[in-house]
Simulated scan of single mutants.
Amino acid sequence: MKKLVSLLLTAGLSVSLLAGCGSQGSSNNDSANAEAGTETAGASVYRTLDEIKDSGKITIGVFSDKNPFGYVDENGDYQGYDVYFADRLAKDLGVDVEYVSTEPASRVEYLKTGKVDLILANFTVTDERAESVDFCLPYMKVALGVVSPDDALITSADELNGKTLIVAKGTTAEAYFSENYPEVNLLKFDQYADAYNALLDGRGDALSTDNTEVLAWALQNDGFSVGIDSIGNQDTIAPAVAQGNKTLLDWVNSEIESLAGEQFFHQDYKETLEPVYGTEVDIDSLVVEGGKLD
């Protein structure tokens, strides 16, 4: 596992993982029926920063089944990397937060239809997505990884030809393997929990998603390892708002920049990922402060 961690660092990932302890006044409502409006003739619907402040609540789309990034704990509370960040945003904005559970393929739709004001769900920045939403400053870098059983470890993408690779719909993993490895059979799921359960049940030979996620999952599940720690592009992860929502975009960007002064994301990492990854990882090689990439 030390070798995997070392390879992960070499890949140049920069993760700012945030511990998700629900803040005071936070609502853990899963409903997607936010007070953000409705879809109008295919155009994006959004609330401005002032409208969010006036309502006293911001709705944020997060994952509910993607530990340690966004998940619901045994008490029914949202926790994780993105959730901790979301709590801080709401606190500094002076409003409560309503969490809306989202699936990977629903993130763009939820912004365009006004079901959420902001997406904080491990959203990888791509040119295609940037045509539909506006991305804020990044808070981590990431590539794809592949996890598989130790007794049949996949160590190169070519080994997947003719085999079954499990992916979540609407992810960069789905897009990458569809385009670059057409001979790989993709088994697709809406929910990450279902995807990982399929791997545990032996319904696929391997699973691919962000390498930070598969590494964390492998550390928590005996008998599985990350045989491919970095494949595809080195991408960035960033919050996203509805296209044209400049007031909210500018405020989130300003917040990300200002948080660098207190090394906020370093502390987030220590509270969330360090218990998962251990102390062998050089935190400075993972954390991005102020949206600035080295």
Rank of each mutant, 00 (worst) to 15 (best):
S26V: 12
S26E: 08
S27H: 09
N28A: 13
N28M: 14
N28P: 01
N29V: 10
D30T: 09
N33I: 08
N33C: 03
A34R: 10
A34T: 09
A34W: 04
A34Q: 06
A36R: 13
A36W: 01
G37W: 11
G37D: 12
G37C: 09
T38F: 12
T38M: 08
T38L: 11
E39C: 08
E39Q: 11
T40H: 12
T40F: 13
T40L: 14
A41I: 11
G42C: 11
G42H: 10
G42P: 07
V45C: 07
V45T: 15
R47H: 02
R47L: 11
T48F: 03
T48N: 07
L49I: 06
L49Q: 02
D50C: 00
E51P: 04
E51V: 02
I52R: 04
K53F: 04
S55A: 15
S55N: 09
G56S: 04
G56R: 03
T59G: 00
T59F: 11
T59I: 03
I60D: 02
G61R: 02
G61K: 02
V62P: 04
S64R: 09
N67L: 08
P68L: 12
V72S: 10
V72T: 14
D73G: 11
N75W: 07
N75K: 14
N75L: 12
G76Q: 11
Y78A: 05
G80L: 10
Y81W: 11
Y81A: 14
D82W: 03
V83M: 08
Y84V: 02
Y84D: 01
Y84R: 08
F85Q: 06
D87Q: 14
D87I: 01
D87Y: 01
R88A: 13
L89A: 12
A90E: 02
A90C: 02
K91G: 01
K91D: 08
K91H: 08
K91V: 03
D92I: 06
L93D: 02
G94D: 03
V95L: 11
V95F: 07
D96I: 00
E98L: 02
Y99R: 14
Y99S: 05
V100D: 07
E103H: 09
E103P: 00
E103R: 15
P104W: 12
P104D: 07
S106Q: 15
S106D: 14
S106P: 00
S106H: 10
V108A: 10
E109C: 00
E109I: 13
E109V: 12
Y110T: 07
L111A: 06
K112W: 00
K112L: 13
K112A: 13
K112G: 01
